[in-house]
Nucleic acid binder design. Structure first.
Length: 416
DNA sequence: TCTGGGGTCCTAGGACCC
DNA sequence: TCTGGGGTCCTAGGACCC
């Protein structure tokens, strides 16, 4: 067994400006030669910067900035769209390379992976963690073409914070016992979880730095930001983090959303957009062998107000034929509460469970729409066609009432 | 400057049950 | 009679991250 006092050995592997790297790898002769490169924007013209090359960042370009503003700061920049397919392919390749070298790998996002190497000391002949990290960095680059930076320490928080001084393309490890001193050298805004809102609240009280906030003590912090957040912040400022690195995906929700090029006020048009998104996410759900119990519909109004409604099924479901009618009712409800042009619609599935669906459901009287074997069989058939003939092989039939349709189909099939 | 798209986690109130 | 208390689930919204 591991000695209780043995420090953990955690690494955070962070791909350097991942989207820019991927765009360049996919087009080495074109944007690969472009120093001033921005990945982002969108066909709608309402886009933001997803990632910018280091050369661009010197002009003040930052991610999440509207592309229009970025181009004002850096007029010579070349803007390319987000290469989604390549990004997920390259992300999987990096993850695979890491899984070949670490017993525990957790993907925190497409371009960030936590590794827990605790217990591998003998395997790596007791070499320093820094040496192991450096070798992993080089091997990942060789194997995938992706340059990463690696932060290391005795927990996830410290590993994450150490990745910053490691950038770009380096390794930085905080030694056991050095956590508190290392974190004390940072700004409050550097702490993950400290965003604009909390920063503003602390600043109102005159707290600008980690040193300020530690000096004032837990008692005052509790009064100002509540006991929960105060305790949380206090531990972060000491570089403490007990959370485990959990191997595998462990996804909690699946969602899709679209911002329109122009605000939409037409209910039928909104419902059509909703149908397309619903078909897409239920397809992803089945791909992953999952079931969902909760569906959420989100609208963003023209004035950027974001509203959402959700509903939970008594039993987990997987087919768009059952999800869509509920989603459409939630959309109608949102529209009835405030009738104003929408700039975005989104739909999400949560309360996820591993499949397969329970075979018999609805043994009780219920008015909830429930999923039948026929619903599932139809979706599986459509999935099969898409696998063989491509994503667009089967297109949803516009504004049909899928609940009526599924009931009719059920009768036909039963009749055979 | 006029704000993407994919997520996670937290809080708080109400329903419901014991 | 006019009032409990804990636990869990659901829902809405917000902060935050990459």
């Amino acid at each position: 067994m591991v000695t209780p006092s043995a420090p953990r050995r955690v690494l955070l592997v962070d791909c350097d400006m991942f989207y820019v790297q991927v765009a360049r790898l996919e087009d080495p002769e074109g944007v690969g030669r472009e120093p001033l490169l921005i990945v982002g924007g969108s066909a709608s013209g309402r886009g933001v910067v997803t990632s910018a090359s280091y050369e661009c960042r010197r002009y003040g370009v930052r991610s999440a900035m509207p592309t229009a503003e970025a181009l004002r700061l850096c007029p010579d920049a070349v803007v390319v769209g987000v290469p989604r397919g390549s990004v997920s392919r390259r992300s999987r390749a990096v993850r695979q390379a890491l899984e070949d070298r670490s017993p525990v790998v957790q993907a925190a996002s497409v371009d960030e992976f936590y590794l827990d190497l605790t217990g591998t000391e003998r395997l790596f002949h007791h070499e320093p963690l820094e040496t192991t990290a450096t070798r992993i960095r080089e091997e990942v680059l060789d194997e995938t073409g992706i340059s990463v930076s690696i932060g290391g320490g005795t927990n996830r928080l410290v590993a994450k914070l150490a990745a910053r001084p490691a950038k770009p393309g380096g390794v930085f490890v905080v030694p056991p016992g050095g956590e508190e001193e290392f974190v004390a050298s940072l700004e409050l805004r550097d702490l993950p979880g400290v965003g604009p809102a909390l920063l503003g609240t602390l600043k109102e009280r005159g707290l600008e730095t980690i040193a300020d906030a530690r000096r004032v003590g837990l008692g005052w912090l509790e009064r100002w930001i509540g006991s929960g957040r105060a305790a949380w912040l206090d531990r972060r400022m000491r570089g403490e983090d007990e959370s485990e690195v959990v191997h595998g995906e462990g996804r909690k929700s699946i969602s899709a959303e679209r911002t329109f090029s122009k605000d939409i006020d037409d209910d039928d048009e909104l419902a059509r957009r909703l149908l397309a998104l619903t078909v897409s996410i239920t397809g992803t759900l089945r791909d992953k062998g999952l079931l969902a119990r909760t569906v959420t519909v989100k609208l963003r109004d023209g004035d950027f107000t974001t509203r959402q409604r959700s509903q939970t099924f008594p039993e987990p479901v997987e087919s768009d034929r059952v999800v869509f009618p509920v989603a459409r009712a939630l959309l109608a409800d949102l529209r009835n509460r405030r009738r104003t042009p929408s700039r975005l619609i989104g739909v999400g599935l949560s309360n996820l469970l591993e499949g397969p669906a329970p075979r018999q459901m609805a043994l009780f009287e219920t008015h909830e729409p429930h999923e039948t074997e026929v619903d599932r069989a139809l979706n599986r058939a459509v999935d099969g066609l898409r696998d063989r003939f491509g994503r667009d092989a089967v297109v949803p039939g516009g504004m049909v009432d899928t609940r009526e349709e599924s009931a009719q189909d059920g009768r036909e099939h039963d009749g055979r």
